[in-house]
Design a protein around this nucleic acid. Structure first.
Lengths: 336, 336
DNA sequence: CGCGTTTACGTCGTTCGTAACGATA
DNA sequence: TATCGTTACGAACGACGTAAACGCG
């Protein structure tokens, strides 16, 4: 059994049991991959795949078990390389982050800027997707960090470091009648207008719908998007009242939109940064976490890396201590 | 990075940083091992060991981390081989068990006999030691199972399947005055005689000393051994009153010794069989567990293998349901 | 000078890529 | 016939073992 055989095995699996595609991905010849697979199966004395004629048909039951172990092995091999890189190539490497649009567009820019200043040679990859897609990416692909909100169940294998909390904001055209209320806005007020907001499958956001239901209200959602910019565009067109994360209610929007704080109307959300508990974090990765979750002390972060599970982490923080990010407050995170 | 380089690395570490010894253990030449270590260090770009002249001095800080990961990798590689063996060599393999004298001498014989009948081709290795030695063996060596009593803290990384509970028995010469009591024996009675019992460091047995202390008694322990046979020998010599595990009070002993049940005098102990949670159990290993912990259903055992931690296992059983092994009751486990 | 490691070198086995072949839809 | 996997073969590489040199106590 060789590491490369396991690597090829995983490449085959990750390319839909297509050996040719796997070979291309590994920058090697197809017969080589084919042969190594055969050698591995011979050494183990078992079939890892069923064959359909000459093509690979399916993964055998035993094959699944082997693949699972092979992934652990490759992961730890990567970890060893990671450890080593930290010693002689401190400022070289790359950082892949999977996150949602709101984070990528409104929260990360200033953090990324600071990070690039400190580590100019580190390549940064930003992968955008829904919570589900992020969960997929981090479990299969080579993603270092996930940054998202809520939905702890989707990310059970990750260590989640909470960063900040946030509420929703209501976004309407400047002359909208909701701007003329002389009292705090209520859900009843909102229910009387057509709403434009995030798609509900969007991690944790369905709590929005439930907030209405809890008061026996039926919100009139006319349009959903997964992108705050799209929502604001439609609000500008007068299609309805927008409900977005407060971070997405940018200062620049205030020129032609009115932003009403919706604190208290909906449950407060917590955004975190997560990483695989079996991953070795390179120095610049730890620094990124500290940038993103700036209230975390170096000492606490050490504890987290030693913690065995998410539950352990929860004991290390009081959620109430997390900063709250509001609308149009630049530099909150960087300044802390 | 090659699997063999990692294997050599671990061999070097496990042989006290002596490359020559490591090479012998791996049945290969010494320069080969030396060279592979060098290649590995070159590829990683870091020193895994400090050098004292030409010899290896110590493991570097980073080296420790690499070694830790390398162990995981080798373990999973073994697991893959294990999985494979289960498919085409069902009845070949070996089973290494670390346990205490009492188990090896009085409990395991009938189980081993049954196991050998079912799996005549499986090699059986019985390693005997104190709880501490057993803990050492299973964490470093290639031991499949640990069988012991109490001391959960020593075996935190293991999955512990409880098998049975037991009490102590008092062993005295047939005409001893303790045999003439017409009431149940008490700790006070015992405290008035010289005692012969297990060494206290012997896992969980120090609870014996505490039982006396809790009643303000000072036991007069004249002799300790880690071996029930030795204890009984000295009891026969009239050196004192023996306190042994009830399983060790054999039927054959009754010819010249009187056995008094000490149930209730000391806390009841639970004996379990433990295995590494990251180990793949071959079919015959699962069967061994079922032989040893015969009250466990196949379904429960499946659940255990899927469980993530010792805590999860504890939820699967009621300790109160475990059988109690008494003195001189042959075939209890086999018959259940 | 013994012990242990490294260097040097020849041998042998393995991997890899190219090219040709076989099977499948 | 296009796609995908296997077989065949020669070239390059890498691992291994023997023999010898080196450093340290």
């Amino acid at each position: 059994m060789k590491l490369q055989q396991l690597k090829y095995l995983l490449a085959i699996v990750d390319n839909g049991l297509n050996i040719t595609a796997a070979a291309e991905r590994m920058y090697t010849s197809q017969p080589g991959v084919s042969k190594q697979l055969k050698l591995l199966e011979e050494e183990l004395g078992m079939q890892l795949f069923t064959r359909k004629g000459k093509s690979l048909g399916n993964i055998t039951a035993a094959g699944h078990q082997v693949i699972e172990r092979a992934r652990i092995i490759m992961r730890e091999a990567d970890n060893i390389r990671s450890l080593a890189s930290d010693y002689y190539q401190e400022e070289e490497g790359s950082l892949s982050i999977a996150t949602t649009h709101t984070q990528a567009r409104y929260v990360l820019p200033e953090i990324v800027a600071e990070f690039r200043k400190r580590f100019p040679k580190i390549g940064l990859n930003l992968h955008q997707g829904t919570s589900e897609q992020i969960a997929d990416m981090i479990s299969s692909n080579d993603i270092d960090f996930a940054i998202a909100t809520g939905s702890n169940d989707l990310f059970g294998d990750l260590m989640l470091v909470p960063s900040y909390r946030w509420d929703r904001s209501i976004v309407v055209p400047k002359d909208h009648e909701l701007t003329k209320l002389d009292r705090k806005i209520t859900l009843q007020d909102l229910a009387q207008h057509p709403l434009v907001t995030y798609v509900f499958s969007f991690g944790g956001q369905s709590s929005l719908k439930r907030a209405f239901e809890d008061q026996g209200l039926e919100p009139d959602v006319v349009f959903t998007a997964r992108d705050a910019d799209v929502i604001k565009t439609y609000v500008r067109m007068g299609m309805g009242v927008g409900i977005v994360a407060s971070m997405a209610a940018d200062c620049s929007d205030r020129k032609d939109l009115a932003v009403i704080d919706a604190e208290g109307l909906f449950p407060r959300s917590t955004t975190w940064i997560g990483f695989r508990k079996d991953a070795v974090l390179r120095r610049y990765m730890v620094d990124f976490i500290r940038l993103f979750a700036s209230h975390i002390s170096a000492h606490q972060l050490d504890d987290i890396q030693r913690a065995g599970s998410q539950v352990d982490i929860d004991k290390l923080f009081k959620t109430a201590d997390l900063p709250i990010r509001g609308a149009c407050e630049e530099g909150v995170t960087a300044a802390a």
